[in-house]
Write a protein that binds this DNA or RNA. Structure first.
Lengths: 221, 221
DNA sequence: ATATCATTCAATTACTTAATTGAGTAAGGA
DNA sequence: TCCTTACTCAATTAAGTAATTGAATGATAT
């Protein structure tokens, strides 16, 4: 094989090597939601600061995340929508070919398994034809850095507190971080117990945004 | 973080770890074109048989390829279209974020750089509106295992020999293995030197098939 | 100046990788 | 039946890479 082709494969392997660590995948999973500092990420993942910093540098070196300095902190974010799509592809492949993933997904939330999830496409068409209340069930910080156009935020901790304010005349669609996130399941479960019509969006916000669908950002004050 | 989420990330890392070796990416690149035996792959990649076999087993263990026995040989093939899409995503990410890839791609065939490539979408619409001759520029074996519907095969070695038979009244579109493959560039170059109107399809056959676009298979006799 | 946040360094431990060897198996042909 | 071909397997090598920690250093804001 040509030398150049070999070198190209080596470059592709740089990307996969960056992704070949559960810790770094977890970091990317958090970064897919919002830009964050080393310290925040270190707390979210329970890795030491030094270790988190090193993992982030490997990701940065291979182009998967970007960094900017802000005051005392350094904020990291996903380098682009293509990276989110790559992780989505990865998830899909794992689900299709690794039996263990299927098993784990069934265990993640046995009581909330919901066959009635709708796709982004279905949501878009429903929004045109009937009254939908779109709920973003993620921490406020993530909502502020981007959410589906028209969505209303109810952070996971405040579900119980705010749930009674939700009007009964609309179909509720809830979404959260993505396929491995429990929040939208919990929300749908809670709404149904109260007799509301509730559906879960299959995709999370990162996939929605990466697909080029309409979203909006609330500037942090 | 929940234990299950950690385990899910570990499963994702199994896939990326399988892909985290230039040799295995190369093997997958060949397998994306056609089902092949260990021996064939060993010759294509210049790896020893035992080494090739071992790499293939790692890929198989993590669900990226499938194996079947046929007579004395064991034939390996890509496990599914999702794997081809994953590799496409990977390539895209590498091109977007690694400067070295851009540099290498410019070097791969400096004389054949062609801005006039068309996408699969454009090809499909062109096929409805004007007379197109679609050329598959890959070895016959790969063509036989699947090619774009309506395509005619001219194997890379026989370009010079068959090129004068190509009618001048049609627009020629040539495709080959994919973005890192030189054959379609060579074909377009040769056709243009003879004054024919020729375009290159951006995508290779694996991407076309993985996108669910129409293809056909010639059964090997 | 001092506190805060992050990076870097050095050292340790653990794992991965590629390649090789030699034995072993299984299918098919002579 | 035995030989050849095609591949696998298990064990081993050497080299390399990775993950992690704690301490030291560097940068920035108050």
């Amino acid at each position: 094989m040509s030398e150049i082709k070999k070198q190209l494969f080596e470059q592709l392997a740089l990307i996969t090597q960056s992704l070949a660590s559960p810790q770094r995948i977890e970091l990317l999973d958090y970064l897919a939601q919002a830009e964050r500092s080393v310290d925040e990420l270190s707390q979210l993942t329970s890795l030491s600061t030094a270790n988190t910093s090193r993992h982030l540098q490997i990701l940065k070196q291979n182009g998967l995340v970007l960094m900017r300095k802000q005051g005392k902190s350094r904020l990291y974010k996903i380098a682009g929508d293509d990276v989110i799509q790559l992780i989505s592809c990865l998830r899909r492949t794992a689900e299709n070919h690794l039996a263990e993933v299927t098993r784990l997904k069934q265990n993640i939330l046995p009581s909330y398994i919901d066959k009635e999830a709708i796709s982004s496409k279905e949501l878009l068409s429903k929004m045109n034809t009937c009254a939908i209340l779109l709920l973003d069930v993620r921490p406020l910080k993530e909502f502020e850095q981007g959410h589906i156009k028209g969505a209303v935020n109810i952070s996971p901790e405040s579900i119980e507190q705010k749930i009674n304010d939700i009007p009964h005349d609309k179909t509720v669609v809830a979404y959260c971080r993505g396929p491995y996130c429990a929040y939208s399941y919990q929300m749908v479960e809670a709404l149904r117990q109260r007799g509301l019509k509730a559906l879960r969006l299959e995709e999370g916000f990162p996939e929605w945004k990466a697909a080029g669908l309409p979203f909006e950002i609330n500037q942090v004050v």
